[in-house]
Design a protein around this nucleic acid. Structure first.
Length: 652
RNA sequence: GCCACCGUAGCUCAGUCGGUAGAGCGGCUGACUUGUAAUCAGCAGGUCGGGAGUUCAAUUCUCCCCGGUGGCUCCA
């Protein structure tokens, strides 16, 4: 047999006469590497113990390669499970996958709840296992033998039943007394786990089903060496500094008073300055896209929510109240209100699309464990909008929306880490959905087409469509790696139908037709979007949304009067200005301006006052002395109007 | 909602092996009048998240509640 060893560009070949393992072959070829953990044989990732029986190309997989790291973490999960089994013999391991984001692994185990102290003990036990350098052995077993082996573990039995066809084989991995049902590959032995740490304990459910068996989930991470692990933790610390909850408090953008309103953010003057800029920008885009702005009340009688289906589908998330024997509900969504506006008159096919937009605060009761800073709250303001369109207008309308999303995220805010998702119907469970198959297929195709026309990469999430229609969602990553949904474009065949609001327009033959509703939001939740951009800019906002654009500081009391004059002039030009005219030192004032991430600090001393000039320092430590106020204002206004992502004045 | 952890001054945190608490920053007052990342001094702030229990005594121990943080199908 011909065996070729491939290392990057180089390759060498030998001839072997009988089947032998990868490690034997490598030894034969004099390939020695203490960082070798696995190999790719003809492109397939396998253990070093894998027997080669035919012509093959072998690529060594080192511990610090992408595949190597994956294997370390996978074996880390096994060692974790082994440690748990040794400490708690009654524990039943279930699944233990590698996670991409955050980088690491977890193992879900059916056992009693454990505390952080227990976690320490488990980690110590893992170190023992690593130290004793147990060989990790792969074995092939028949399905029946697998079932016999795991007869005490119903979870593994379920997995075996599900994944291994009758009468066929699958693999287990054995290290010391521990054996796990697993496809592998794994490290050659436990001592290769050189840098690892257990991170946290939480609670998960078997198959993610809240009514299923609760499991203990233990999170950990592992790296090829201590240095890489340290770097990772340092990076995490850095990310925490961007956390919008921390920055929101430091920059005085919003507060929370959980004792009075858990997860109801309260916006302070600076936060509102930022919000207003975001709102004005979006209102302008909405107008350009043909949306007419409307306003609807914050509560309606439940009769409206019954008609819209919210009382049957969304009741648990609604704030309900009784007033004078009548039931009311705070609005969790705006669609029914906008439908009432649509219904106020008769429409022609020529009028379509009809579009309404509203910056509307909605109220949703979220379960106590799922709220998080501004990213998931119970009162949120949506840049909501609804377009009522003809079937043939879907693709164009959706395309326009995608263009807006691209403009807002990519161009205006420079946010590139977006994930587009197309949620479609579960093809095996069509009864769950309203509307005909034909309409669904057409609509899904239209969504797909509008994404592809703009060469946007997207994931298809089959089965994640709402029961009333397919949708496109845009997710973004936060400072600590979690993804949150921002924009959404949802098609809806449900609310316009005869059983609900029975919406109509007349076609060219004067026949009544049912419009399709497009629910859409670009920021999604303004609150969430604020959280995202606080983290994205780490609080150093572009000038146009910066709550304080300019701070004026004086050097000493002598320049007080001239400082006040400059403040008034800036204010009269519509610049958001604050000042520090206290008797503190200039050193301290500058330090604080930097801490507050103020874009421009205007410094006024005797020199400036005498020459009727100003000096400007920016938050990047750059400075221009003795310039005219006019030249500064020109640049300020240019940066504000162009929504510049950079501040330039001090760079020339 | 479930699991773990957490809740001390406006903020960040220390502390009490059970005897009702302390620092820095911030605030206020005064002195200093400063030229580019913390001037000095004094003062005022806390029913130690809420409730109940154990105890001569609870911020500290126990239980309950309220909040916060992280996690809750990235399938063997």
């Amino acid at each position: 047999m011909q065996v070729r060893l491939k290392r990057g560009e180089k390759s060498t070949e030998i001839e072997i006469s009988s089947p032998m393992s990868v490690s034997e072959i490598l030894e034969l070829m004099n390939y020695k590497d203490k960082d070798l953990v696995a190999a790719k044989v003809n492109g397939k990732l396998v253990d070093l113990s894998q027997i080669v029986k035919e012509d093959a190309t072998i690529e060594p997989v080192r511990i610090d390669s992408e595949d190597g790291i994956h294997i370390i973490r996978h074996s880390g999960a096994h060692i974790l499970a082994q440690a748990v089994k040794e400490l708690y013999p009654e524990a039943q391991p279930t699944i233990g996958p590698v996670t991409e984001d955050p980088p690491g692994f977890y193992y879900d185990i059916h056992m009693r709840n454990i505390t952080e102290e227990d976690l320490k003990k488990i980690e110590d036990k893992m170190r023992e296992i690593v130290k004793s350098d147990l060989k990790i052995k792969r074995k092939e077993l028949k399905k029946d033998d697998l079932k016999e082996l795991f007869r005490d573990n119903p979870f593994k039995l379920e997995l075996i039943e599900e994944n291994v066809p009758d009468n066929s084989y699958s693999t287990v991995y054995e290290q010391g007394d521990f054996i796990d049902f697993c496809l592998g590959p794994h490290l050659p032995s436990t001592s290769y786990l050189r840098a690892f740490k257990l991170l946290s304990v939480s609670n998960a459910y078997w198959r993610g089903n809240e009514k299923g068996t609760p499991l203990v989930r233990i999170y950990g991470t592992a790296f090829p060496n201590e240095k890489m692990m340290k770097e990772y933790f340092a990076m995490l610390e850095e990310a925490k500094r961007r956390d919008h909850r921390k920055l929101g408090a430091e920059l005085d953008l919003f507060i929370m008073r959980p004792e009075y309103g858990p997860s109801f953010p309260i916006y302070t003057p600076k936060g509102v300055a930022l919000r207003n800029e975001l709102i004005n920008y979006m209102k302008q885009l909405n107008r350009k896209a043909g949306y007419e702005e409307v306003w609807t009340p914050h509560a309606f009688k439940t009769s409206l929510w019954e008609k819209s289906g919210h009382m049957s589908h969304y009741r648990d998330n609604m704030f309900l109240m009784e007033v004078e024997n009548e039931d009311y509900g705070m609005k969790p969504m705006n669609c029914p209100g906008h439908i009432l506006i649509f219904q106020r008159k008769a429409w022609s096919y020529r009028d379509m699309p009809v579009r309404f937009s509203e910056f509307a605060t909605v109220y949703r009761y979220e379960k106590s464990g799922v709220t998080s800073g501004l990213l998931r709250v119970r009162s949120l303001t949506q840049d909501d909008g609804h377009a009522f369109v003809r079937m043939d207008q879907i693709e164009q309308e959706v395309g326009k929306l995608i263009d807006i999303i691209k403009e807002v995220y990519y161009s205006t805010f420079g946010i590139k880490e977006l994930k587009f998702k197309l949620s479609t119907r579960d093809e095996n469970n069509k009864d769950k959905y309203t509307g005909s198959s034909e309409v669904w297929d057409k609509a899904t195709k239209a969504l797909m087409q509008s994404l592809e026309n703009r060469s946007i990469k997207y994931e298809i999430k089959e089965g994640e469509a709402a029961f009333y229609g397919p949708k496109i969602d845009v997710d973004v990553r936060d400072a600590i790696g979690r993804y949150w949904q921002l924009s959404t474009i949802q098609l809806d065949f449900f609310m316009p139908d005869r059983d609900h609001f029975d919406l109509k327009y007349n076609d060219e033959n004067n026949q009544p037709q049912q419009p399709v509703m497009i629910h859409r939001a670009i920021y999604g939740s303004l609150d969430r979007f604020m959280g995202v951009i606080i983290e994205h800019f780490a609080g150093a906002f572009p000038l146009w949304i910066s709550p304080v654009q300019v701070r004026v500081v004086n050097i000493s009391e002598g320049s007080l009067e001239y400082s006040r004059k400059i403040i008034d002039l800036l204010l009269s030009e519509g610049i958001r200005v604050d000042s520090d005219l206290s008797s503190e030192t200039i050193n301290k004032k500058i330090r604080e301006a930097h801490g507050d991430k103020i874009p421009y600090t205007v410094i006024i001393g005797d020199k400036e006052a005498n020459e009727s000039k100003i000096s400007v320092r920016d938050r990047k430590n750059r400075q221009r002395n003795l310039v005219s106020l006019e030249s500064f204002l020109t640049v300020l206004k240019e940066e504000i109007n162009s929504k510049s992502l950079e501040i330039h004045f001090c760079s020339n």
